[in-house]
Write a protein that binds this DNA or RNA. Structure first.
Length: 720
DNA sequence: GTAAGTGTTC
């Protein structure tokens, strides 16, 4: 066969089999090193077959043209093999002795894209310099790769400089800028660019631009601007395009109600795994864990294979609803699909097991993970704190540091929260030092956590200093300081700070701020002020109180003996009454010995949360004071027969810079006998002073120590 | 003769 005929055959080849046969034909007639044919073949392999064939062909071709180089570079770049791409690029430069092999605009754009993939700013800048020298930098493809490179490295200024070089940037260049801002956490700037492009410059946005714009609106929770993006999508007849429909679904998920998102999802003519994952995530994020799991199961029943992202969201739903059974089911599903040890899946599993109070499973998984990142470490250490083992959290934090993982702001917040469970000032100060050293002290979330930490370590002065030292105070900072005063019973100070914030700063109070100020009023017994604040929240700031706000109001009124008012609030709550609200009323009934109302609260609690032993015990305490021994016995029997366990509170004391943790009736500590001996002496002293302790030591010691397995006493020296 | 920027997650 002649060369021409073979080339024509090559053009019409459409399967890997036929191209392989043709390839062997070329080899037979000695045409395989014909540079045109080699490039064509390589391009075919890169597009439709495996990268291995392309590479083999490349190696076997003695006369490599720029085209051949480009086509093999493109295959590696397409497979996201950034390092290999750049390795080959370097080879090419080395071999570029003749002008024929000089990298062209195509080569440069691929190399830049690989640098972007690796966040390799230094090499990227070098290649940028090379492109300038070779006068390749005005090519649009090179330009978009440069913008992408600088954006991925967080250098939006440089992206802007590249963009400014073009007199008439095309839609892709504009879009690169929009996505650059959007992915660098600047959705506002992204939308500004988008409107400059679409309105001032009359460049018609394409699907990619619109996806990014919708995503920026989602990040801002800006429903209004999101709707106008949706309008553009409809006007261009693009609303059935899957990627756009998905980004609009995400927009509804992040801005509107669950209902909007669900309706949009059901109306979508085509759905892919991303559509399903988005709605599962939407349910999971918005407190609708059961819906998330239903949807996930619907998907499985329909035979649609979830990916790791879907599984992560479904696991989040299990974690939020403490659904260990479903969580374990999804775990085995992840094993079947082969992504159990995928870093994000494994981390979500750790989080789920920790929140379902099954730390053993979490630790087992963590140990088996081949790769861990800062998020997995953070899940582990905050999980320990959630399971009452804050001491272990501190140790995990040290392990993380010694294994060379740098904490991010989230991990910092979590370790500070774990430390605040311990309430040990010494360790708080150590972590504070670490925060300063690592430069996290300017982060608003870390600052707020420090305020909370010091407040919980009984050092309100330090909390105040942190607060005063924060240059950027946002609503979280103010709320934390208000909460700190509340924790210390300083209701007046909390109110003063609240008013100072409302009158003298630009920061507006939110739901959390009111939670802090209401709880401060409750702790300080400021009943009138609390009611005023609650009304202010409703009327002046038009905020919708949630079950927690109502719980605090019930607590506040209940503590002050206003049980009828508290009951009235419960009866008029516009949101579902959660167990803790009834719990607050029941607690108040115990203080003020109101048996009738206590019974109502308890009955509601028993039906809402039948496994919580604490509520049975609270009611039985009310009966006991009333000497209603018959009912006391009845309740104790229920607890015993249903094997209900009271979640044990763990206490920690600091002795000579060492933290010692213990639980009630704990006899596992090495110095246990001595501790109880001292306690008996103290009790005797109290009796001499005519004080009768509420609970007697012998009573505590008779209590079973079951259910304390993983809370065994531990003593270790300060780790930080 | 090859070609760009985007959507779901811990």
């Amino acid at each position: 066969m002649k060369r021409g005929e073979l080339v024509q055959l090559l053009e019409t080849c459409c399967s890997q089999i036929s191209i392989s046969q043709l390839h062997s034909q070329f080899l037979k007639v000695g045409l395989a090193d014909d540079s045109f044919i080699a490039t064509k073949l390589s391009s075919f392999y890169a597009n439709y077959a495996s990268i291995k064939y392309a590479r083999k062909l490349f190696e076997e071709t003695p006369r490599r043209t720029v085209w051949l180089w480009n086509s093999v570079l493109r295959s590696y770049c397409g497979e996201r093999e950034w390092e290999e791409t750049l390795f080959l690029f370097r080879q090419m430069i080395i071999e570029a002795v003749s002008a024929e092999k000089k990298p062209d605009n195509f080569t440069v754009s691929i190399a830049l894209k690989s640098c972007a993939g690796l966040h390799g700013l230094r090499l990227g800048r070098m290649i940028h310099g090379f492109a300038k020298k070779e006068k390749l930098d005005m090519d649009m493809f090179v330009g978009s790769a440069l913008i992408e490179l600088y954006s991925k490295c967080g250098q939006m200024n440089d992206s802007g400089k590249v963009f400014m070089e073009y007199r008439k940037p095309d839609v892709v260049l504009w879009t690169s800028m929009v996505t650059g801002y959007e992915q660098n956490g600047c959705p506002e700037e992204a939308l500004a660019f988008f409107s400059r492009m679409a309105v001032s410059e009359r460049v018609i946005p394409d699907p990619v631009t619109l996806v990014t714009a919708a995503s920026a609106c989602a990040k801002l929770s800006d429903f209004k601007r999101g709707s106008s993006v949706h309008g553009v999508v409809i006007r261009q007849g693009l609303d059935t395009k899957l990627s756009l429909a998905n980004s609009l679904l995400n927009l509804y998920a992040k801005t509107g109600s669950i209902k909007n998102a669900a309706n949009w999802f059901r109306a979508m003519p085509n759905k892919d795994i991303i559509s399903w994952s988005s709605l599962v995530a939407c349910y999971a994020d918005n407190g609708a864990g059961t819906n998330a799991l239903d949807l996930f199961n619907e998907m499985i029943d329909k035979g649609i294979k979830p990916n790791s992202v879907t599984v992560v969201s479904a696991l989040q739903a299990c974690a939020a609803t403490s659904n260990l059974k479903e969580g374990a089911k999804i775990h085995s599903l992840a094993v079947d699909y082969g992504f159990e040890l995928d870093i994000s899946v494994a981390t979500a599993l750790i989080d789920m097991y920790m929140k379902c109070l099954s730390p053993e499973n979490a630790v087992d998984l963590f140990k088996r993970m081949p790769k861990k990142d800062v998020i997995s470490w953070a899940a582990l250490l905050s999980g320990y704190a959630q399971n009452g083992m804050a001491n272990t959290s501190m140790g995990i934090f040290c392990n993380m540091l010694s294994e060379g993982t740098r904490p991010d702001a989230v991990a910092m917040v979590k370790i500070l929260a774990a430390c605040s469970e311990l309430g040990i000032l010494q360790q708080a100060a150590c972590l504070h030092g670490f925060v300063i050293k690592t430069g996290f002290n300017s982060n608003v979330f870390v600052g707020a956590s420090l305020i909370e930490l010091y407040a919980k370590c009984s050092s309100i002065d330090n909390a105040e200093n942190i607060f005063k030292g924060m240059t950027d105070k946002d609503v979280v900072t103010w709320s934390s300081m208000i909460a700190a005063y509340g924790l210390h019973g300083k209701g007046e100070e909390a109110l003063k700070l609240f008013h100072h914030m409302v009158n003298n700063s630009d920061v507006k109070p939110n739901n959390i701020t009111f939670l802090s100020v209401l709880s401060a009023c409750s702790h300080a017994g400021l009943i009138k002020e609390g009611i005023d604040m609650f009304n202010m929240m409703l009327n002046e700031f038009q905020l919708k109180p949630n079950a927690e706000h109502y719980g605090i109001m019930v607590d506040l009124l209940g503590r002050m003996g206003e049980l009828d008012m508290a009951m009235d609030i419960i009866n008029h709550m516009p949101v579902p009454v959660e167990p803790h609200v009834w719990g607050a009323l029941l607690g108040a009934c115990r203080i003020h010995q109101n048996m009738k109302m206590g019974e109502i609260a308890a009955m509601n609690l028993f039906s809402l949360d039948p496994d919580h032993a604490g509520y049975y015990i609270l009611l039985s305490n009310i009966y006991a004071v009333d000497e209603n021994w018959h009912n006391v016995a009845k309740l104790r029997r229920v607890v015993k027969e249903n094997r209900l366990k009271k979640i044990q509170g763990q206490s920690v004391v600091e002795v000579k810079n060492e933290a010692h943790s213990f639980v009630a009736a704990d006899r596992l500590h090495a110095e246990s006998d001595l501790t109880y001996e001292v306690l008996r002496k103290l009790e005797a002293n109290m009796r001499e002073e005519c004080c009768v302790p509420q609970v007697q030591i012998e009573e505590i010691l008779q209590a079973p120590v079951k259910g304390v397995q993983n809370l065994k006493s531990q003593s270790r020296s300060s780790p930080v």
